[in-house]
Design a binder for these strands. Sequence first.
DNA 1: GCCTGGCACTCTGTCCGTGCGAGTGCCAGT
DNA 2: ACTGGCACTCGCACGGACAGAGTGCCAGGC
Lengths: 340, 340
Amino acid sequence: MAHDERRLEVLRAIVQDYVSTNDPVGSKALAERHDLGVSPATIRNDMAVLEEQGYITQPHTSAGRVPTDKGYRLFVDRLSAVKPLSVAERRAIERFLDGAVDLHDVLGRTVRLLAQLTRQVAVVQYPSLSRSAVRHVEVVQVAAARLLLVLITDTGRVEQRVVDCPVDVDPESVRELRTLLNSAFTGAKLADAGAKVPDLLETAPTHLRGLVATVSATLLETLVEPSEDRLVVGGTANLTRGNALDFPGTVRPLLEALEEQVVVLRLMSEVDASTVLVRIGEENAHEALTSASFVSVGYGSADRALGGLGVVGPTRMDYPTNMAAVRAVARYVGHLLAES
Amino acid sequence: MAHDERRLEVLRAIVQDYVSTNDPVGSKALAERHDLGVSPATIRNDMAVLEEQGYITQPHTSAGRVPTDKGYRLFVDRLSAVKPLSVAERRAIERFLDGAVDLHDVLGRTVRLLAQLTRQVAVVQYPSLSRSAVRHVEVVQVAAARLLLVLITDTGRVEQRVVDCPVDVDPESVRELRTLLNSAFTGAKLADAGAKVPDLLETAPTHLRGLVATVSATLLETLVEPSEDRLVVGGTANLTRGNALDFPGTVRPLLEALEEQVVVLRLMSEVDASTVLVRIGEENAHEALTSASFVSVGYGSADRALGGLGVVGPTRMDYPTNMAAVRAVARYVGHLLAES
DNA sequence: GCCTGGCACTCTGTCCGTGCGAGTGCCAGT
DNA sequence: ACTGGCACTCGCACGGACAGAGTGCCAGGC
């Protein structure tokens, strides 16, 4: 029916205008700025219907209309085409990320890049430990009865733990231990590492049993502990951009949630690498984020997402552009980490 | 002269009142809240002198007085005693920092602790590479012609770099290389490491020369590069606390400067571990920080500062408390890193 | 049946004038 | 040298008037 179609067109126009002007948009302005082929009065009727259906709302009588969360949702799902990035932007991504010297650097550059590209707050998760594989385990003796355990994953992430042993350890044992651990764990997915411990304990020479047990315990703790998942945040200054209406009250709770990390990590846990996930306003199910939207996607090769990255901003954001930027950056980071 | 003394007392009272109430303070309120033993009229005369000397100013005619940067400076230098931390606070520091599992964790906890204690933005610098000593160098072969170099310092910091070799490397050479590097560098201050390279090259067996040269080059790059100094920032949500007057305009430039890191690191480069450094407003010589104060101190043992930490907030801050907190936390972190 | 032009209505943001309160500076008196 | 008193200056909060934007509704046209 031509009706419904035009009504959606009106909704799209409202979203686009509101996103770009930051003012509630009225029927007259809409008719002027878009070729809808109908008069303001007709648009008003459509808007009345859209409002009744819950897609738009007016801040107060006799102001223009503003999209609701539901309206943005419809817009994202059905009314927007993902905007391809310009050549200049693609090149910027490459130039920005190439030349990174280590994982920390890669993620730091990524977060700055995303923040700059989208003009929103960017978040990047460290490659998940449990989804990585062990590249190398290193044991360093730092004192007679104290060892430093260093775990290097194939994504370049490095974890370290100090292990206090009940008795002194001689250097030869350290060497054996290193060999033992590496042959047991190297190449294994960290998620599977736990299963290898009993085996390892059995095959270990008797004089190393105790040591292996102590060290394995710490190692497992390191691997399993998912709370240790890290997050890099950047571009928080972008929160102060734009209208005060974007975040009712203040940006304070949002800043706190971003520092809390746990909140964002939980949201990020749902991502996969194939589709860009958009959570709008109330959909976020966390108080501090109810007036914000979260656009995220997993990075890594298709079969396993190493982690997630995304941007956080006001619900009034340019979804097509941000989704495109997030996806493009994730792809590039995925390649970068896969080949290193 | 009794005059001057009372005048300073008035200045102290003004600073204290203004910090706690956030309102320009007038002569009447001052007389009521402090036992200065004189009438408001007298205080007014003193205030007129203080204003003429540049220690205080009035936002507009017929509002109370507000301390200037110069006023705060005098207050910090001569009028304030460092307020000792309460037992509860000391205990909080211990409880908060104990149980950290690695360096990243220590610094993360530190920054959260400082932010919470002072209700300001907290910054903590990673232990400086050049002032640390090498604990261990690890070489891991990740491909035929690609090595991963891992450097572990005595402060628990871990740096890693990928090295691409011109020719394939056999595993035996990797083992020799590891031994070689460790015997050359272990225990050496990173600042001195550069000097050891020529020696190393000479003593290296002929078949390893090329490899050692390549690897050393990357290693040196890692060590010397001071731009890689890292910063942990926390408590940015505290910027939105307090009056809008605290930061004229917005907090935006400040947030940007904090993310820039370079700016803060430069300020931090001057700290040493013995005295708490306070930079007030314009003293900061960076545009974004001219309406902010920076309280910092070095941590580490007395003879060598490993890095700096501090807080950033409005010039209108509680200097004695913040200085005490910064110093106490720095001491504790210093101990923690020294013993690990 | 759908669209359009017109019209009355409502509401907000803004501007302006007023009054009030806080605070000052100055002066004369002790 | 300090104090009380007094006139003066502003900023700010309050309130009314006004203009502008936008709506809902209705009657008429295609």
